[in-house]
Lab assay of single mutants.
Amino acid sequence: TSIVNVSSSLNVRSSASTSSKVIGSLSGNTKVTIVGEEGAFYKIEYKGSHGYVAKEYI
């Protein structure tokens, strides 16, 4: 489990790309479970499925 480190919110994306669809967002200090990594993104558990967040904010 890791913590989201942002002051406002962090986009959760459908794939490991800044141009991919935003499927949701997480607020600062939210706990997330990392299940993998791809480039500059972590794959996380998100709403019963998976999403991707930028590593620099975790």
Rank of each mutant, 00 (worst) to 15 (best):
E45L: 14
V4P: 07
A16K: 02
K21I: 10
I3H: 10
S7H: 12
E37M: 09
Y57V: 07
I23V: 06
G28I: 14
Y52C: 02
S20A: 13
T18R: 12
S25E: 10
S8Y: 11
S7F: 08
S49K: 10
V32K: 01
S9V: 13
G36D: 06
F41G: 00
N11R: 13
H50T: 10
G48A: 06
E56Q: 11
S7V: 12
S15I: 05
K31I: 14
K55R: 07
Y52Q: 00
S8C: 15
N5G: 09
Y52P: 00
G28F: 13
V32W: 05
Y57H: 12
T30H: 07
S2C: 15
A16H: 04
L26C: 04
Y46D: 00
V22F: 06
G24N: 02
L10W: 07
G39A: 05
K43R: 10
T18W: 15
G36N: 04
V4L: 09
S8N: 11
T1Y: 06
V12S: 01
R13Q: 10
I23G: 00
V12Y: 01
E37H: 06
G51N: 01
T33G: 06
K21E: 12
F41P: 00
S2E: 07
I58D: 03
G36H: 04
S25D: 05
N11G: 07
A16R: 03
Y42S: 02
A40L: 10
V6C: 15
K43Y: 05
N29I: 09
A16C: 05
K43F: 05
T33C: 12
V6Q: 08
E38A: 07
G28E: 10
Y57I: 06
I23S: 02
T18M: 15
G36R: 03
S27E: 13
E38C: 13
S7P: 11
V32Y: 06
Y57E: 14
V22Q: 04
G28V: 14
E45R: 08
S7D: 09
N29H: 11
K47F: 10
L26V: 08
S8K: 13
S20P: 01
T1S: 11
A54V: 08
V22P: 05
G39C: 06
S17L: 06
S8V: 14
S19N: 13
S7K: 12
Y46Q: 00
R13V: 08
S19T: 13
K55Y: 02
N29K: 10
N29R: 09
V35F: 05
G36Q: 04
